[in-house]
Each structure stands twice: as C-alpha cells, then as structure tokens.
Design a protein around this nucleic acid. Structure first.
Length: 393
DNA sequence: GAAACGTGGGC
DNA sequence: TGCCCAAGTTT
C-alpha cells in the first residue's frame, strides 16, 4: 500500500499505469478504513435509508425520490422537503395520480423544477410500464425521466446493493484528490470511471456508496478537514499540498443581469393576476406575477408583453411596492414590483380580450396555494400578511 | 456539447 | 455585498 503516494499532480502517468500501481492491498485499505470511518462518523439517520433498529426494509421509492431531490442539492436542504413529499405521496401510485401542480407545490423552494416535472412523469412511466416497481435493471431505470447515469447507478447500488459504481460530485472530489488528477470535467470523468470501479467494495456496495458520499460531503469537501483524514499518506493532493487546487475549478463565465417589471394587478375584491409560466425556461410551469422584460437578452414582444407595457405606461396610480434582486446560478434577476389598482371587470376584460391563456385571476389567498418561484412566493406572503401593503399602500 | 436550470448557505 | 458552491439531467 505504498504506491498511491507516488502519484504526481503534473506529468501524471497514464491512467492504465496508475491502475496497475494500485494493488489489491491498497484497495482493501481504502475500503476498510472508509467503511470503518462511515460506521463511526457517517450519516446513519437519513430518512430514505431503512432504520435497522426499527427493522425497516429498504424502500426503493424513497431512495429514488431522495436521489432526485439530492441532485445538486445538499442533504440538509432536502430533509424537510423529503418528509413533506413522502407524507403527501407515499407510493409511486400516489405520485402518479397527483396533479403536476400538487407536485410542484411541494417542490416549491427546492429549485430545478424540471426535476419535479420529470419525477411526476416518471412515476406515471413506472406505474404503467413496471407496475410501480423499480426493477434492478440499469437500462430500465435509466429510461425513467430525470434519471441519468449517476442516479441510475446510485439507485442500483443503494437500493439493490448491486456493484454499480457511482461517480457523483462527492466521489469525483474524493478520487481526484487521491489520484491528483487534473483534467476538464468530461475527460476527468472518463478517466475517473475505472478508479471508481476499482475502489468499489463489491461485498457491500450500498454501504460503500453511502460511505464515500458521506466522506466527500462531510470530510473531503470543498474545504476539506484533512487533519481528521485517514488517507493523508495516500492522498496525492494532500502530499503535494494541492488540496485547495483539486478538483480544478472551471473558468467562470460572467453573470448577466436581467431586469423585469412585475405587475400586481389588484382589484377591489383582492384579486390578482397570475401567469402560469411556459414549461421551457426558468421556473417552468410555476405561477408567477405577469412580468415585462425591461432589459436582458432575447427581447420579445409577445402580446402579453405589449399589454403589460401599456398598463405600466397608462396607469398614473401605479405604485412601486418593492425592488428585488434574485441571484441564479447563471444570471441575476432584478425586478421592480408595481401595484396597479383595477376593477374586477377590467381584469376579466383584459384576460378575455387579449386571450391570455395561462393567466388566472385569483384572490391573494388562493394565490398562496399555487406553486410559485421562491422570490414571488415571498412577495405574495408579505402582501397577504399586509406587511408590504401597510407601509406602501 | 455547451448552456440552461434554483436556492440557501459559506465566507 | 457579491460570488462560489452543492448527491446532475436535459436539450
């Protein structure tokens, strides 16, 4: 077990050579220490894992839901969503017969809403094609919407205890540091794959998989706790003091800003106008306030945009209630919220005359029940509780 | 195949 | 405050 520490960050030998250098003894060292660490310091109370003390059996549906929620999302964030989701949809059949709106409502705030839409569609796939039972079949699982290679492997390893090696963000971080591998993401994954399979503990794929992910998430994280690590002497990144540089960060692109006006039509019966956003694009299929693009890319003049522009220009009594900044991964959204007092009749006429499909006239209280983007939900909550209205009405 | 797709937390 | 990051998949 003395060859892992001969790996170099630069002039990396061919990966085939690296693989040959890794002896069975080293693999066992890694697996044993990792599993021992997991036993001691791993997360054993995750609600999608069976609790042994209660003699719980593995529930593949719970594993599946958790894997989808955990995509690009940390465990602490997922926990409350998972509990609410499972309470509402305990089985694939429950999920399949729910409306997409119900599913999106429970997903509200969790982000990446295509996950919820795909999950809902996949539950119907599962019920129709597989009688609601996830089969131990990579190709079949992989065909379900929202399940890619990583999630398929995770389900097979975690749910069926089968020797499928995952290569997710955690495993990638761990293995790049151990090997000192530096490469662009796609090439990196290609070269890391054989390592992930070599290290996989085939006697216990489920625990091993959870162990290496816990290890990556809690110890070998972005700012790793190397002082507590059992792999120091075998970790190329640690030995070469390059822990902070590995994995290599991709070059960042600049972050554009989009400015919009949000329109709060408001009638004497406390009704407002909401738009169900198109499936494609940001916040797909969620309900949001009518918005007018002020500045940003792909300026388009839809009929509704023209109407809202006219509205903003024509109403002298509009009030600017709030300004919002919302940071997405790839751009910043600036929004100004305008209140436009109108009559019920005006709103109804507006909807029908302009044929505003996907628009709904609802009371503020009903609006709270619809799935919405998080910043819009926060605005409407403030409005409903009058905290915004009191100061600015 | 690069870009799109959310949000809350760390610093 | 502003920027970076986290259990990826889809188009």
């Amino acid at each position: 077990m003395n060859n892992l520490n001969t790996l170099h960050l630069e002039d990396l030998p061919q990966d085939e050579t690296l693989l040959q250098q890794i002896t069975q003894k080293q693999v066992l060292y890694f697996q044993e220490h990792l599993l021992e660490w997991f036993e001691r310091e791993g997360r054993h109370d995750l609600p999608w894992k069976p609790q042994a003390q209660f003699s719980e059996k593995i529930n593949l549906y719970r594993i599946w839901i958790s894997e989808i929620m955990l995509q690009q999302t940390q465990v602490v964030t997922v926990l409350p969503y998972f509990e609410r989701f499972m309470a509402a949809f305990p089985t694939p059949e429950d999920l399949a017969k729910a409306s997409e709106e119900e599913v999106l409502k429970l997903w509200q705030g969790l982000g990446y809403y295509s996950r919820a839409r795909n999950l809902h569609a996949a539950s119907k796939q599962l019920v129709l094609e597989f009688n609601g039972i996830i089969p131990p079949d990579f190709e079949a699982i992989r065909r379900l919407k929202g399940i890619g290679d990583t999630t398929a492997n995770a389900i097979l390893a975690q749910g069926f205890n089968l020797p499928f090696a995952i290569l997710d963000g955690n495993v990638r971080r761990v293995l790049t540091r151990i090997t000192g591998m530096m490469a662009p993401r796609k090439e990196l994954d290609k070269r890391l794959k054989p390592f992930s399979e070599t290290f996989l503990c085939r006697q216990n794929p489920a625990d091993y998989t959870q162990a290496i992910m816990d290890f990556g998430a809690t110890l070998c994280k972005l700012k790793p706790l190397c002082e507590r690590c059992f792999l120091q002497q075998y970790c190329s990144a640690f030995i070469h003091e390059k822990v902070a540089e590995i994995p290599a960060k991709p070059i960042k692109k600049k972050n554009p800003t989009e400015s919009v006006a949000l329109i709060l039509y408001w009638t004497e019966t406390n009704q407002i106008l909401l738009e169900k956003r198109p499936t494609k694009g940001i916040w797909g299929n969620l309900y949001s306030l009518p918005e007018l693009l002020l500045q940003g890319k792909d300026q388009k003049s839809t009929s509704s945009a023209i109407i809202h522009e006219k509205t903003l220009n024509d109403f002298p009594h509009k009030k600017q209630l709030a300004n919002i900044r919302h940071q997405f991964t790839h751009y910043t959204l600036e929004a100004s919220l305008f209140k436009i007092p109108v009559s019920d009749e005006y709103l109804k006429a507006l909807i029908s005359s302009q044929n505003l499909k996907n628009y709904r006239m609802v009371t503020v209280n009903d609006a709270l029940l619809l799935p919405k983007p998080q910043p819009i939900a926060e605005l409407l909550n403030q409005i409903a509780t009058n905290s915004l209205a009191q100061t600015l009405w």
